[in-house]
Nucleic acid binder design. Structure first.
Length: 213
DNA sequence: TGCCAGGCCCTCTTTAGGGCCTT
């Protein structure tokens, strides 16, 4: 495995918290299968409110661009189709999932997709990285990038390359043939000092099932 | 009135505080 399909997703938003009235303004998502990006989804969204100067300069998305963009509900309907029942990945997933769930809730849809977080995984697998910001990890691991940051599709693509690299590095460093999604989720949930133990158990269990076969 | 994110994770911890990450 490691060849299973995931959707890597990233949102640009008006702020940090949907509970405080913040909305999504752009989504980028990529479908990753067999260790490559095989499909892409991107759209701006009109949040129905003016965005701050900070967000305009942070993202490069301005109020004029959003005034002619489709409504959030229209884009969410299309996003729902794109992600289907795939497992989800995001960098600092708790952030993107909060917005995804809040916007899905507004179109009366409830997410059932499981998710994993590339930031939490990176904290465990790359303890020597200067920090675990997406931009830093892309530089640290020399991942593919066109230099664009804080735009949804560019960030989703970089996160996808980070995700694929994480799986490759775990395979290589810990002698695993496969890195199931469940193992990536577990890595994100366990304490840092349990990482080696969990990966060793995964390898032992893979070896014993190989012997059984 | 003025303030308001939230979850993870480390440590001088667990009857708590503060930095990291996302926009």
């Amino acid at each position: 495995m490691g060849n299973y399909t995931v959707v890597v997703i990233d949102f640009e938003t008006t702020g940090l918290s949907p509970n405080m009235g913040d909305r999504t303004i752009e989504v980028g998502a990529v479908l990753v299968s067999n260790n490559q990006i095989i499909d892409r989804f991107q759209s701006l969204m009109n949040p129905g409110m003016r965005i701050s100067g900070f967000i305009e300069s942070f993202t490069g998305i301005n109020n004029k661009m959003l005034s002619s963009a489709p409504s959030i509900s229209e884009v969410m309907g299309n996003l729902k189709t794109f992600i289907a029942d795939h497992q989800l990945v995001a960098h600092n997933a708790s952030f993107d999932l909060r917005f995804l769930d809040a916007e899905f809730n507004r179109i009366n849809h409830k997410r059932k997709n499981e998710f994993a977080c590339s930031m939490l995984s990176s904290r465990r697998i790359y303890p020597d990285a200067p920090n675990c910001k997406l931009e830093t990890l892309v530089r640290f691991k020399k991942l593919k990038t066109d230099g664009t940051h804080h735009r949804a599709l560019a960030d989703a693509e970089m996160t996808a390359h980070l995700w694929m690299r994480l799986i490759e590095d775990i395979k290589e460093t810990h002698g695993l043939k496969n890195v199931p999604f469940k193992l990536m989720q577990n890595l994100s949930k366990i304490p840092k000092n349990k990482v080696s133990e969990i990966l060793m158990k995964a390898r032992e269990s893979a070896h014993s099932s190989n012997r059984a076969n």
